[in-house]
Amino acid sequence: MRGMTTWTITVFAVLTLAAPAAAQSTSERFWVGVSGGVQGTSNGFSDSFTFASQFQDPESSTASVDYPVKGGPLVDGSFVVRLWKGFGVGVAVSQFSKGGSAAVTASVPHPFQFNQFRSIEGSTSTTRNELGIHLQFAYLVPLASHVRLIAFAGPSRISVEQTFVTDVQYTQAFPFDAATFSRATTRLSSASAAGFNGGADVIWMFARRFGVGGLVQYSAAKVRQDLGNNRSITVDAGGIQAGGGVRMVF
């Protein structure tokens, strides 16, 4: 998060310094947009790890977890300043949240015999939150008298908060022919990474300073999560995002 804060400050510093130099050619200089929409990409992933077996068994148990991170609602806010002719620079912030149920399968050893593992299955609820901050190099094109297109691309910083399964509890009893999934221990982990974004915003101005826009963009980053005990996992963040909302021009 500290890295993200520094990054955000840098972006705003660039905007602040750049804006005065390009302040004179047209009345449409600053664009502000707020959109609601969906992130359509499914970023499901799998993880596997070993965990301690019951009774201090010398054989470890292994677990595989499938995290179905499906698409879901998205909120996006952007600010673009035109610097020279149709060229501008901006910053956008997007927030995506989605709950889900992770499927857990594990293989646990028989307490009396080596190499006789029993399979257990279960599930646990998980959450995924993504916060993206996007630096956007934009090009503004007037398509008609009331219609504008803003095409943009640039680097991103995406923070991912994800619930991970870190341990599996199970029950078993003599003669230990089977074991039963009891619950999964989870941990909410967050990390961020650099990525990129690109897309377009089509705006219809129904008033001099107000309009509505339709946004399609793609952002992506690979975020490495450190889960402790020398475990880490890299997850995909972002994806295809689409939405619409209000636009203001100054």
């Binding site: 010398p58 307490p111 009396f112 080596f114």
Partner: peptide, 19 residues
């Protein structure tokens, strides 16, 4: 006193679990 599973070496040098 809890149940524990250990590693045992048998008379013939083989390894097995011990409860």
């Amino acid at each position: 006193q809890v149940a524990a599973v250990g590693r045992a070496q048998g008379v013939l040098g083989d390894t097995k679990k011990i409860s």
